[in-house]
Design a protein around this nucleic acid. Structure first.
Ligand code: ZN
Length: 303
DNA sequence: CGTCTTTGACCCGCGC
DNA sequence: GCGCGGGTCAAAGACG
């Protein structure tokens, strides 16, 4: 039950309640052990208030768990966004010469959707054929695998995929696998999975498009508590202090779809508020970006 | 028997 | 035009 392991050691000021009620966070209930004295005091009386309080604590605990799940979800999404920004910065600095060499080291990131596809209209007058429109949003996810499935090239993300190709690429000794969603053609999502050049225990999954259906296997959006149903437990590399925080796979693009899966978490407006707040808090901290980069490379230089 | 994986062939864009 | 590299197709096989 260490659902508190994803602690916000980054100093993120998470105002879950917009009305600054953060002071009455039920830390006391969360600790659980220190309630002994309190319970002993109330043991002399009838057990009704005790049960009542227990119930309340249970509810609160569940609420907190949900909130934690949600926060981690947003955290992952934000991280991907940060990767995107960092990649853009790197590309600007590196310019374009030696783009193949640059691609080896700086191709992490997340080109999520809104790529400025300006000038999609045919300015040329006549044939406006654009066979490869990039309207699908592409997201890149790094997944650490256990050394046992070193050659499986499988990322368990809750969806069902059908492999339709595998190629050996130029810059990477490990092959790249091509997957389509099993719901194709109704669901046009594709993904590419390849091992990282730097760290062969890290899989790089590139997703294109959004699913228009729920996940086929549940028990994926679990935080901290791993139900053990996933044998090849993949874990996203996402933390600054510990090299691998086992946030099970959450795709940033799914946040819009996942709101039907978690309808009780208030409103999407609050979600956006949370994301924005986290973004501002994180982007204000310059060492965070460096730490993220370090975490993505599996190294651990703490300033 | 249906579904998924494997794997060589094929296609297409790009640089020369 | 040609070669190269990345992406996809589809026949054959594996698997349940
Ligand atoms: Zn799908």
């Amino acid at each position: 039950m260490d659902s508190t392991r994803v602690d916000t050691s980054l100093g993120i000021n998470l105002n879950i309640n917009p009305s600054h009620k953060i002071d009455e966070t039920p830390k006391r209930e969360f600790q659980g052990h220190d309630c002994a004295g309190e319970r002993k005091a109330s043991m002399n009386q009838e057990p009704d208030p005790l049960i009542e309080e227990l119930h309340r604590i249970k509810t609160e605990n569940r609420k907190l768990t949900e909130m934690l799940t949600f926060v981690c979800e947003n955290y992952t999404a934000l991280q991907s966004h940060l990767m995107e920004l960092m990649q853009k910065n790197s590309e600007n600095e590196i310019t374009k010469l030696g783009k193949r060499k640059a691609g080896e080291e700086y191709n992490y990131g997340n080109v999520s959707g809104i790529n400025g596809d300006i000038d999609s209209s045919c300015s040329d007058g006549g044939s406006c054929k654009r066979p490869r429109e990039i309207k699908t949003n592409i997201s890149r996810v790094y997944v650490r695998t256990s050394p046992s499935d070193m050659m499986s090239l499988i990322v368990r993300d809750g969806y069902q995929w059908r492999k339709y190709g595998q190629k050996v690429t130029r810059d990477n000794p490990s092959p790249r696998a091509y997957y389509k969603c099993s719901f194709a053609p109704s669901c046009p999502v594709k993904k590419k999975v390849q091992r990282s050049v730097e760290d062969p225990s890290v899989l790089v999954a590139i997703y294109e498009g959004d699913h228009n259906h729920p996940q086929t296997t549940q028990a994926v959006v679990s935080v901290g508590v791993n139900p053990g149903s996933v044998p090849s437990s993949n874990s996203i590399i996402s933390s600054t202090s510990s090299p691998t925080a086992t946030l099970d796979f959450i795709k940033p693009g799914l946040c819009s779809n996942a709101k039907m899966a978690s309808p009780e978490i208030d409103s999407p407006k609050l979600q956006q508020f949370l994301v924005e707040q986290m973004a501002s808090s994180l982007s204000r901290n310059p060492s965070f970006t460096a730490a993220i980069a370090a975490a993505y490379y599996g190294k651990d230089f703490r300033t």
